[in-house]
Amino acid sequence: MEEEEIQAAIKELTQELTADAVMYFRKAIEKANLVLTGDLIESIDYTVQQEVGMMGATAEIFFREYGRFKDMRRVQYPNYMDVDAISEWVEKVGIEKFAWANGYENKSSVPTVKNAKARIVASIIFARKKVPVVVQNSKKQWYNRTKMAYFNVMGRRLNSRLAEILPKYMKDIIENQA
């Protein structure tokens, strides 16, 4: 077995393992119910790179930055909140998804008036000023638990696949030296 064949097999295996890891992360996000807008799931992507002359490959998995904040046990919000960003988020989610808006008598529904969005945004900002540190539910933590579980799966799969590839390579090296 030639060195180029081994490098190709390693790159193929890395591609396969990384694609599976992305699938694991997507399932974990769905299980944690972090799919309100779908941005986090859609943002997960990966790259696999192989350096010339090296026996190995590097894989990177990346996603939107706020995904790690969703995974943190304690989140401390800043004193200043970006009103425009919160307003865009409320618009993207949709006013009808919020249970009520502060200031309305009937708190069971959100009327679709022009200032409902502004009141929802103000409620979010005031709530974060009132409670600047939020302790999150551990069932919504998706990244660390999934990452470590997949590292275990990946280690077993790497061991079994390399056990198939490397003996052939070592045999060729020993035969060529003799």
Rank of each mutant, 00 (worst) to 15 (best):
E16P: 12
L17Q: 03
L17R: 02
D20V: 13
D20G: 14
Y24L: 12
K31A: 14
V35Q: 09
V35F: 11
T37P: 12
D39S: 06
I44P: 04
D45N: 08
D45A: 12
V52H: 13
V52L: 13
G56L: 05
A57F: 04
A59M: 06
I61V: 02
F62G: 08
F62E: 03
Y66K: 07
G67H: 15
F69P: 01
R74D: 13
R74T: 12
V75Y: 02
Q76G: 04
P78C: 11
D82V: 00
D82S: 02
V83K: 14
D84Y: 00
A85N: 04
S87N: 14
E88D: 14
E88A: 03
E88L: 03
V90L: 01
E91H: 12
V93G: 04
V93C: 03
W100N: 13
N102Y: 12
Y104W: 15
Y104R: 07
E105N: 10
S108C: 12
T112I: 10
K114N: 13
N115Q: 05
N115H: 11
A116W: 08
S123M: 04
I125Y: 00
A127D: 00
R128H: 02
K130E: 02
V133Q: 00
V135G: 08
Q136A: 03
Q136G: 04
K139C: 11
W142K: 03
Y143F: 03
R145T: 15
R145N: 12
K147H: 11
Y150P: 05
F151K: 03
V153I: 11
V153K: 04
V153H: 03
M154L: 09
